[in-house]
Design a protein around this nucleic acid. Structure first.
Lengths: 186, 186
DNA sequence: GTTATAGCCTAATCCTCTTAGTTCGTCAAG
DNA sequence: CTTGACGAACTAAGAGGATTAGGCTATAAC
């Protein structure tokens, strides 16, 4: 159910998520969906959770067995790939944190998934021997750059024909060098 | 008209923009709005244009008379301030580039405003003696970081209590150092 | 003074989400 | 085998929101 909804949203954009469309995909009348989900907001909450969990899992996998620059590049690449493959899910993942009226369980689980996600990034930074507040600020900086890049990319906000892969590479390299420098100084 | 809509969207969030609410704010019935605007999509297009123009103007003002690090910090701060003061407008500004069916004029004007916006950032980078593709990649990196930061900030995605101003400062500093280094090497 | 236009209105249509109440089939307990 | 509970579908109905069509009035242009 949530899977089908995820397919819909990834294929046709976040605005295309409607109970009517979802019911159609199941060959069922709209009100019948209320036997399985609390409503549209609820469904969004479930999708958000799903997105966070998938993203976290991908980053985790990308990070395992790597350290330093390798880990950074792998995790960043995994992040961007996820956003490309699941634009709808990715969009919801960021949407208003505790938004409205998700199922309480979903909201809690989403918070936990988000925390694990930050954990993964932190673990990458640990490879640079960063700890404490420095690591937290660096995590924020990295998340901001990653999210900003894929968001602008998805929105088509990068007008020029300049190679996006190169831009992304450089952005990550920028972080790498800053982290390496900070690390060698500490 | 568009101004009132902008107030609405900044006060109550992007989802609260409805023709009904706008008509209410004017003490008028919903269909009457069609004498002034082509429809909801059209209104969004006009708002997007307005947001881009305001943002561009602010960055422009922040950059004038400054160079190098000063200019970078001022422009970045102006960017973040705008997003804080006009969260609704800012959100639309990024929304799908040529989205759907804006008025053609608006779409063109929005493209032009976006181009001018990039121009401002490029002019800041020129203070670092960056030119050509390097400058374009750096512009993308900077835009990505700025947008990502304010977007995550607005979404409440930065969970921890850690001071956001400090995080932002460090992010900008990161770009500054990278630019300065690149500049001294070139 | 007549006409054109701008801008408002009501009425009506079409969507979407949502709730309430009903029906039907399955499955376990007696 | 009967019966009762439960899950999951349905129809009916209502509340909003966008949009179109057609009609009324006032003001500005000739």
């Amino acid at each position: 159910m949530v899977e089908r909804a995820a397919d819909l949203i990834d294929a046709d954009g976040s605005a295309a998520l409607s109970l009517a469309a979802l019911a159609g995909a199941f060959g069922v009348r709209t009100p019948s969906l209320y036997n399985h989900v609390g409503g549209l907001d609820d469904l969004r909450g479930a999708l958000r959770l799903r997105g966070l969990e998938m993203l976290e899992q991908r980053l985790q996998r990308a990070a395992v067995g790597r350290a330093g620059r390798d880990a950074l590049v792998a995790v960043a690449g995994a992040y961007r790939d996820f956003a490309h493959e699941h634009p709808g899910l990715y969009g919801l993942t960021l949407g208003a944190g505790g938004g409205e009226s998700d199922t309480v369980r979903d909201a809690e689980a989403a918070g936990a998934a988000a925390a694990r996600l930050v954990e993964v990034v932190l673990s990458v930074l640990r490879g640079y021997r960063l700890e404490g507040e420095d690591a937290l600020h660096a995590t924020r900086a990295l998340r901001a750059s990653l999210h900003g890049f894929v968001a602008l990319e998805s929105a088509g906000a990068f007008g020029l024909k300049l190679d996006l892969d190169v831009s992304f590479e450089r952005l990550i390299d920028l972080h790498h060098r800053s982290l390496a420098e900070r690390s060698s100084r500490g």
